[in-house]
Design a protein around this nucleic acid. Sequence first.
DNA 1: ATTAGCACTCAAATGGCGAGAGTGCTAATG
DNA 2: CATTAGCACTCTCGCCATTTGAGTGCTAAT
Lengths: 341, 341
Amino acid sequence: MLDDRIHKVLWAVVESYITNPDPVGSRFVTKKYAFNLSPATIRNIMADLEEMGLLRQPHTSAGRVPTDKGYRLYVDYLRQREDISRYYEIEQTVRKLEDIRSDINELLKEASRALSTASHYVGVVLSPRPEKTTFSGINLFRYREGQVMAVLLTDEGIVTNKCIAMDADVSQRDLNRISDYLNAEFAGRTLDEIRTRLLREMHRAKVLCDTLISRAIRICREALTFDYGDLFISGLSEVLGLPDFSDLQRIKEISRAIEDRHLIIKLLDRLSEEQGVSVVIGSENPALEMRKLSMVVCSYKEGDRPIGTIAIIGPTRMDYPKVISVVERTAKSITKVLSER
Amino acid sequence: MLDDRIHKVLWAVVESYITNPDPVGSRFVTKKYAFNLSPATIRNIMADLEEMGLLRQPHTSAGRVPTDKGYRLYVDYLRQREDISRYYEIEQTVRKLEDIRSDINELLKEASRALSTASHYVGVVLSPRPEKTTFSGINLFRYREGQVMAVLLTDEGIVTNKCIAMDADVSQRDLNRISDYLNAEFAGRTLDEIRTRLLREMHRAKVLCDTLISRAIRICREALTFDYGDLFISGLSEVLGLPDFSDLQRIKEISRAIEDRHLIIKLLDRLSEEQGVSVVIGSENPALEMRKLSMVVCSYKEGDRPIGTIAIIGPTRMDYPKVISVVERTAKSITKVLSER
DNA sequence: ATTAGCACTCAAATGGCGAGAGTGCTAATG
DNA sequence: CATTAGCACTCTCGCCATTTGAGTGCTAAT
């Protein structure tokens, strides 16, 4: 704060290291980032930065490398400066998403691909959380003897189908009555609300012994409890070739971590309530397996309610400005498509 | 043929190399596989095998390693001998699949997982080819202004939904008439048949200028041309840690090849007509990117028509007996579930 | 406060050396 | 004549010492 020279040096080290994975030395800083200072002075400053835990040297006679804490400071600066630099290359990739209006799953799958190709890291998209979505309509029909097919629509355009096995055969006429009832009763409510309400109704139905209604409730419950939305992951190969993970052991670790859908979902979920883009750097990550990786996360919305999450996962030595732009931009596109349909 | 000693040696080399990735020497063969022959004799035989292109030495003073051609011979032997050894460990993993009766997508996703965990290689499942499936029923409803939601069911239990934008709003009553018509007309036919028939009908409708029918046809066409079935891939991390791919460059290559869904689909498709299990070894593979990998492929059926394909992908140095068993067994389970529903 | 100079440190590259494993060839053997 | 024992040869791998070069920390001069 007092001395902003020190921050400039940190900045220089991070920027340089991000574009080129060699530890950066004092001489290089003076040359490339033209301060009017000699290498010796820079060395002093760097020593200070190291004391503060913002830089470290891989070994005595090497240059300096940012620590996770160093990246953190860098990123915080970045966010203050608000000037989201324009990356025209990404614009092109992301813009294509806005043409996908028909199928939301298609949109999300392409989004994960776009995240990955624009950033050259791993792109992740978590489809809308079931509880957050709002009920639009349900459609029931008899599929086979004793099996009912339920097609659930939400306002966000998500379509899920579930095959429900019934204890007894149900006629299509009954199913129509049930779906009419459900549609009239629940339109516009969030699935969360519906679920709690369903519990109450269930109680009542038991008391009334109304088989039709109790059946309806059973069907509805089944149809509404669809499992966690899909998780779309793209571009693992982008990240595996990186010099950051030259170690074989690490590669296995990382690919396993990224393949672990439950883990990723849990991590994204934790950040889904945040406003705007959040950045999790290396060891800040609660999961051990991810402590060599950074995540840049943002949620997309329908209207103004955040309903799902996207992210880019890469090494801690990551092009944060670009990645943040990509994530922000992509979230915006998804939000736009969802809101305009 | 004349001399089956020579084949026994090949067999021994392959078996040994498969369980342990060290080049195998003549001494080792005599010890472990107790022929009544001295190392010197084995060396002569091995030299012959090398001339035939079935073995090779990584360098002069190392043992021998099978070539792709060597594996091929080994695998062909394996297949003749018909005695599919029982692997009890896999039984357990695969058996679980048979409990998944509700959702075919769930089944296939789990199948890819099972393939991977049972074999420790990459498991791949291609969902049924659209053209091969048989139409069971379609359900249309008005979703929004000018948008129609089509839910297509097939006899195999596949459910797909498609949102179709219409030029004009269509009433639910009309939609019902259309779907009734389609259901009556097309039940039990394969989607392939329907498509060709649709083309004819379209012609007729144009002539008649019947808007209802031409609309119906348009909707149906949209609903039936769903893109290639999903491809489920599991266990990439299993394969990346293998000693076979210690090279960083190779790892990137391989992960990219396996992530390339189009490529995989194309390769699986080429083999989908084969009866039973087929094995593609390393350089036999038409795709360059896959020339260090082997694939073991089998299709699963509904009734007796093959409709989709599963595979295991791993290094050429692969436990073929086990992998073949796993693939065969898994295909059988999927077939069973599809046929019993 | 900054800088020039210098001694110091350490990783990575280089090269020589010996051990070990496995081969190919030849001559001896049953 | 097929098989085998023996032996010289080849090549990889791990080990060690040495060198090189980049970058540092410290100190004294500016």
